Structures are given as C-alpha cells and as structure tokens.
Amino acid sequence: MKFHVQPVKLYTLLISTLTSITGLHAQNLHIYASPNGSATADGSSAAAPVNLDRARAVARAHPSQACIIYLANGVYKSLTLDATDNRSAADPVVYVSNSPHGAVFTPENYVDRSKFQAIPDSIKSRIINATAKTMVKQIPLSALGIADSAQWPAQFGISDLVSPKFYKDGLPLPMSRYPAGTATMPMKQVINSGVYKGVPGGSFKYQDDRAKYWTKAINDGGVWLAGNWQAQFQMDVVRTYSVSTADSLITQSIGIYGGLGAKPYGRLVAGQEPYFALNLVEEIAAEGQAVRQLPHEDALYVAARHRHRDLLRQ
C-alpha cells in the first residue's frame, strides 16, 4: 500500500489545442492516452487508450515521425521529459487535450513515514473517535515540500477549496468531515440572515449538537462549514465566528451575498438548509483522513495505520 500527498495546487500541462497542430506533416503518428489507460497497448485507437508513460514510450520509439498524443479528460500524474525525449523540430511530439482544460496534471510527493511525529496531548484530547486518537500523527508541510498557501478566506465556493490530498493505492482519501461520507446536517432555524460582507455574519440554530466539540477549534485552526445556505445548486464554505452551546447557535464570520437562509428559487426547505463541517482535527475518524492545521499552516494531521506499518513502501 502506498500513501502519497497531492500538493495544494493543480497544474495544467502546457498542451496544444487541435488548431495548433495543422502544420505537422500528414504522416503523423496518433497516440491516444487516458489516466487509466493500458500499459502495454500501442494507443492507436481512441477506444483503447494507453497510460501516459506508455504513450511517451510509443512516441520515443518513433523518433523520426511527428507524434500527436491525444489526452482524454482526467487528472494525470506529473510528466517529466528527459534526454530520451529529444527529437528534431521537424518531428515533434505534441500533447493535445481532447477538450479545453480537460487534461489536468498534478504533481505527487510520496510520504516518508519517518517524518511523521507524535501529536501533542492538546490535539489528541480534541479527537472524538477513540481509535483515531491512537492513529493520528503530524507532519510539517515543509517536510512534504508544500509551501504555505495562505489561510482559507472567510467564504469561498466549495469548488475553490485548496488543500493537500492524500491517496492510498491510487484512490483519494477524504478530508475529515462531519457527518461522514456525503451526509449533511439540517439547520433548525435561521435567526439572523446577516448583511453582505458584514462581520459577524448570519446566525442559525442547529439541530445536531456535534458543534459542542468544536469550540476549541474556533480560535485554534478555525471551523469552516460547507452548506447550501440559500439554494440547492450553490454550496459555499463559510468560517464560523462562534458556537454558543447554551443557545444551540452558530454565527458565521461574514455575511454572505443575499443573506443566510433558503430562497424561493433555491428548492430548499427553510429551516432545513443542509451543511457539514470539514477540516476539523476533532472529526478525524478513518485511516488516511487529513486535516491541514489553520491558521498556522505548518502541520498536517493524518490518521495512519496503527504504528505506521505499511504507511509507505518505497
């Protein structure tokens, strides 16, 4: 089993569009590739693509023939070219995305398990899951070669979430969240819809009292809740200003556009707007779940297999 971490940013390979390859001569070698393509085929058919390494090998085997490598949509590992890829300008290799921004390249770093460290008792005491308490370790982001990427803003769209991602055997492992999986919690009642960009923002009463475990995180890392605050088709992440367990009240750190609470066009039931918590140390509950500690941004907490056995085979 292998764990690796995906650095904070995604990078798109500088690739050509279809309109830029018309200057190549007629005897082009066409190679079709996809992120999960074959490692042995020749890539001559779009119906049977090869993986990126195989596409590169096929191109290298034809140094005197211009090659066009068509990239199916998806996320590819980083691509490194060396002297074996050298060829004349008359017979280039052109990488072409099948659609604009469809082929995305993301670099990977394998995690050296020796760099993981024990977490302080102040962090361990906050973890709710008893098993996770014995599994969670920490690693400095600098040890992974990840530069600080700036603290999350007070509000942003869920699609703009920026954080390292862990993988096990090629499969992505989730960031810690509550409820687990794809479940959400419903609000109970909007108390104050808030004023756009006002500080603090809107507030609502909650039904699920899980928030009582997050009070320490308010000022140590922060509490971000992702929710359909107004409409079913729009999910934003908003930092929490405060949690009042006495009043079962959550107050957001900034007012959102249009105000907190379901809108007539939003296809949501008022008082039942769904939301969930993410990136909380308290909610690490499964192997591989990671939390980037904010606002320090100098540590990553990860639930690893007991005693780190098989965390990484190199």
Rank of each mutant, 00 (worst) to 15 (best):
V195M: 03
A211W: 10
R210F: 01
T131H: 00
P92N: 12
A130V: 14
A183S: 08
V199F: 03
R113D: 06
K168T: 13
E108P: 06
A211T: 15
A130H: 07
V96G: 08
P172E: 09
V96M: 06
I191Y: 05
D121K: 15
G194A: 06
S163K: 13
H101K: 10
S149E: 15
F116A: 08
S122H: 05
D169S: 12
G202S: 04
W152L: 13
A89K: 12
Y110D: 09
G194Q: 03
V104T: 10
D160A: 15
L144H: 07
F116E: 04
N228K: 09
A103N: 07
L171P: 02
D208V: 04
A150N: 11
G170K: 07
E108H: 11
N192V: 15
L161V: 13
V162I: 15
Y178E: 10
S163P: 02
M185K: 13
P179T: 10
F116D: 05
G198E: 00
Q117M: 05
P140V: 12
T182Y: 01
W214P: 06
V162A: 12
Y206K: 05
K165M: 15
R113W: 02
G202H: 06
N192L: 14
M187P: 00
Q138T: 09
G227I: 06
P172V: 12
V223W: 00
M175A: 14
G227R: 06
I146G: 04
G221E: 06
K212E: 03
V190W: 01
S176N: 10
K124H: 01
K133V: 08
D169L: 13
N86Y: 08
L144A: 11
K197P: 00
Y213D: 05
M175C: 12
G181M: 04
P92T: 10
S193E: 07
L173Y: 02
T134W: 01
S88P: 01
F204H: 07
I218E: 04
P179E: 02
G202I: 08
S159W: 09
T215F: 02
S97E: 13
D209P: 05
S122W: 05
G145A: 12
D148R: 14
P120T: 09
